[in-house]
Design a protein around this nucleic acid. Structure first.
Lengths: 348, 348
DNA sequence: ACTATTTTGACAACCGATTGCCATACGCTG
DNA sequence: CAGCGTATGGCAATCGGTTGTCAAAATAGT
């Protein structure tokens, strides 16, 4: 009689068989309309407790799970959040991704992870694509220019990470604030000639770090030169190390740990000792910074937590009702972690 | 007249404004039915070339992008593939994820990345969820038992990584095949008392590695004992190192590089030198294995490529027409990479 | 020129859920 | 018991596409 011919509905099966159940199956089983089922599940107070319980029982028995596509189509909410990173290979983003993943899952959202390959075009087209398939996006280290980013943010809820654009909520990992610490640390070891090994030219992070460092250097009357730009990969470390050696500095503050670790390897290859011949300070304290050789002095920050905060800020935008303070800028503290890659200036 | 009142349709705007265009907008603009637009875009040969071109031009002008939710709902294909990993923190999976991400994107699919938290229950419920929101799944290092996994595979296209279950296509990273190499390497340094530091009890990979190692050991008349199980994290390395020291062996072959690196750190803390006092061999050659201290001797395999192969195999299932040989088992070669963490047996 | 055949495109049902609107049925007050 | 308010649940439209069916138009054949 009813259109319910799925596998023997005995007891609870460990995993559903046949076609997944729909609200229509439940409706048929309970002898009510599909809309009633929908209401019973979404607005329980809108339907009589007796029917509601009948429906809920049937839903359990049939292993009903709402079809997210259909839900998305009618409600306009997809339950997904896009996370854009320039390079999925970079361990820095691993920590970030882990943070977003955990927090999104806790909130019942699905994470759409996309690697934009350090390309502004890929980033723009991904954003356009995501406009319809995600409720919001978290964009880490955007390679887009300010206008394009602001335009994209106007079209859908967005939170940026390490990127400041007017009107776009952002999580800023405040590495620049640790630059004076790092410089003082080096000065305390007697260094007076320091280089900043910079990251990608379009990276706002790199620019901010350089600005903070050169300001601090000026205050202290120390010479700081800038090398680079270098791609944020360990392989770039070789060129960076050679440039540092050639420049004659005794210490480097490096855009990120990836390049710093590459420099460590290259300096070793060239027979130079760290920190005896050259001191190295990294940024980010990524996986590996504590066990490389020598362990890297670096600027640590709660990256995973930054991911979680970014998600919270995005969710606050999505559900304006619930959230309390709707901050639109969150700064993550950073501090210098001293390990073995920094030491006294060479006596020579 | 027409229902087209989006922003001035002049030239090509860098990014669309207002509500995204639908096939209905295009239909109205061209004066045809929506279904014709759908066909013009999907089965071009099914519609007159003149109308087709008109429609395509309109689509471009309106920045039309199909709504993936709607497409999924009616066609049943979501254009998404789930990738399940037990621990998104583990660098081993980073490489895998990168491989799947790249290949999926190349094929026009979206990657849904999920961390199953080393839990079979989370894994099962994720799989159930994904049944409706993804066209297929790639399951790495499943924690599910064989029956549950086979049952899940019967419901949707699936490829496993490092997990052999009858009837489920798999990519196997053949680390076991390098075990004899690793053992011979240690024997050549004079080691006769070796320990296998095992991974999670439910890990099939760990079991296979142990089986291969103990078989090789028996052939060669070498004593190999098993320690563990240990969780695949660097933190477990401390306990593993202590266990190894206590057991009196002179060399360890470790389930994975994460634990191995943790052991390196712990042994150093305890004042033991590697490889002078103890030799360590890891598995996987993850990010960091080449720059830890000492650099880790380990079994390398093309993990990223494994991810790409897994995607290819899955896509072959999804589009049975195109693909040629529909292999259902792919074995990735592995070899020993000798670095600094192995050396002669202590003379004491 | 007239019929036979093929092309072309419109109509409408459908995918699975949500939601505004409305009709019924119930409970209550007077 | 009339009259009214409210709790309840069904109908149908909608989201944006896809696709089977069929009629009209264009083409071919004799």
């Amino acid at each position: 009689m009813f259109a319910v011919q799925r596998g023997t509905p005995m007891a609870t099966q460990p995993m559903a068989t046949g076609r997944p159940a729909t609200i229509h199956d439940i409706a048929a089983l309970c002898g009510v309309a599909a809309s009633t089922v929908s209401r019973a599940l979404a607005n329980p107070e809108r339907v009589n407790i007796r029917t509601r319980e009948r429906i809920q029982a049937a839903a359990v028995e049939l292993h009903y799970t709402p079809n997210s596509q259909a839900k998305a189509l009618s409600s306009g909410k997809t339950g997904a959040v896009g996370v854009l990173v320039p390079d999925i290979t970079n361990p820095f983003y691993f920590d970030l991704i882990r943070g977003t993943q955990l927090q999104l899952k806790a909130a019942g959202y699905t994470q759409l992870l996309v690697d934009t390959e350090e390309s502004d075009e890929v980033e723009a087209s991904t954003l356009e694509q995501l406009r319809k398939s995600a409720d919001g996006v978290i964009v880490a280290a955007s390679r887009l220019n300010d206008d394009a980013l602001a335009a994209a943010a106007a079209l859908m809820p967005m939170v940026t990470v390490n990127r400041d654009v007017d009107g776009v909520p952002a999580v800023i990992i405040d590495t620049p604030s640790a630059m004076p610490q790092a410089l003082d640390h080096l000065i305390s070891w007697g260094h007076t000639s320091v280089a900043y090994v910079s990251g990608p030219a379009v990276s706002q992070s790199s620019a901010r770090r350089w600005a903070a460092l050169s300001a601090a250097a000026e205050e202290r009357g120390v010479e700081v030169r800038r090398l680079g730009p270098f791609a944020p990969k360990t392989q770039s470390g070789a060129a960076a190390a050679d440039a540092a050696v050639h420049s004659g500095v005794t210490a480097c503050i490096v855009f990120n740990d990836l390049i710093a670790i590459g420099m460590l390897q290259r300096l070793r290859e060239r027979g130079l000792r760290v920190p005896e011949d050259m001191s190295i300070v990294g940024c980010d304290d990524i996986f590996g910074a504590d066990f490389c050789n020598p362990p890297l002095t670096t600027m640590s920050s709660p990256i995973e937590q930054a991911g979680r905060v970014a998600v919270s800020m995005l969710l606050a935008q999505l559900n304006p009702l619930a959230g309390g303070g709707n901050r639109n800028r969150s700064v993550m503290p950073t501090h210098l972690t001293v390990r073995g890659s920094t030491g006294p200036v060479p006596s020579a």
